[in-house]
Design a binder for these strands. Structure first.
Lengths: 219, 219
DNA sequence: ACCTGAACACCGTTCAAGT
DNA sequence: ACCTGAACACCGTTCAAGT
């Protein structure tokens, strides 16, 4: 099959980013190369460099595009509910686009990404009564938790949800020395079966929300 | 300068992993290639494949080697203190070896890594009075928090601790539309100056510990 | 077994050139 | 300006061979 010659001026930053997201979601971060991406767009590799100075710049644009999707929660809802909405949206976005996690782990932020959602999150916390420093800390804590939980979920659980692979993992834990690691071996069923997925994320988020509620009462 | 011919049988899995850690710490994850690592050991690239089937397997060994350093906390200390010790040790390990974060973001765990520290962490929680499921959830939450906070710290703050770069970042936030993002602009000083580094990690950890304490009282 | 050297099928990116 | 084709300096890994 011969390569179609691309009609001129069909490329754009947005079109390239869109296609990059498709490749990342379908085939993973390793599969996204400037050459493969260009080929899937029907152009030569160097065509992309008209729109992005480097692969890093393209990945930053992919990250910003995905983050712009983030929910900023229901206006007027109680602060816990709104924090829950925004945090869960971030968690799900990361799990749905695992490559995004790798971008977070390799590229610094410029500072103005996800501005809508960040503004909503921060103003929710301020309105709830947290002082400036506590609101900033709390915001970051929630983001860190979503990022950490999603990283774990994607690497260690996603695609292992079938009974067979869970059973194998549990067997692996149980085969460890029960003398050296009694609790680990004892809790093997819980570690592989319960502490997975969004339930694990929610457990941690509610713990954080509870701690924040407590702080608010003390103030 | 001519390449030294390596004396035979000087290589070993441990020696290779040790050198890999040095390269990662000194020059970062991108600088670690099988070719560069081999050269720094004075051997040809293919020599490494006698000890590791692939670069992935080598990275897994690097991860396991670093995780084996983890503190398992002071025996007999109150449960909060011990959780704090173990969590902080993980956080610091990740910040000191940023490449480890990228390994967590790209490689699945086999399940038996950091078994000593995990056992200590889980048994501390069980002894404190948490039921099986809650202990498993709490353990994971703490690990996720350390991983998320370290990822953020390494990508967005480390190396930006000098006043000059903080000032620039703050100026960037403050240059955003104060009409569209009033809270974000207002909290710029807190976001760049306070919510950084181990203070941010500790804030979140204490929130989680507070939530756990609360759960224990309710039970 | 342990290690080498050549080779293969890739990368991201530079450069000079075409329209 | 937008895009191409050739080339450069890399990758990880296979294969056949040496000791």
């Amino acid at each position: 099959m011969q390569r179609q010659r691309a009609a001129r001026h069909t490329l754009s930053r947005d079109a390239i980013v869109e296609q990059a997201v498709t490749v990342l979601d379908d085939s993973g971060a390793d599969a996204l190369t400037m050459r493969s991406l260009a080929q899937s767009l029907g152009v030569g590799p160097m065509a992309l460099y008209t729109y992005f100075r480097s692969k890093h710049e393209l990945l930053d644009a992919v990250r910003d595009r995905l983050l712009s999707e983030l929910s900023h929660g229901t206006e007027g809802a109680p602060w816990e509910a709104r924090v829950r909405e925004i945090a869960t949206a971030l968690y799900r976005l990361l799990v749905q686009h695992p490559a995004l996690i790798q971008i977070f782990a390799t590229r610094p932020l410029a500072g103005h990404e996800a501005a809508e959602a960040t503004e909503a999150h921060l103003s929710t916390l301020r309105t709830a009564g947290f002082d400036r420093a506590t609101a900033a800390f709390a915001h970051q804590t929630v983001v860190h938790h979503a990022l950490g939980a999603a990283t774990w979920e994607v690497q260690n659980n996603t695609g292992r949800t079938d009974a067979e692979s869970r059973r194998r993992m549990q067997a692996g834990l149980e085969s460890m020395s029960a003398r050296q690691y009694p609790t680990l071996v004892d809790l093997a069923p819980e570690l592989v079966q319960e502490a997975w997925g969004e339930a694990q994320f929610s457990f941690g988020l509610e713990l954080i929300l509870d701690g924040l509620r407590h702080k608010l009462r003390q103030a």
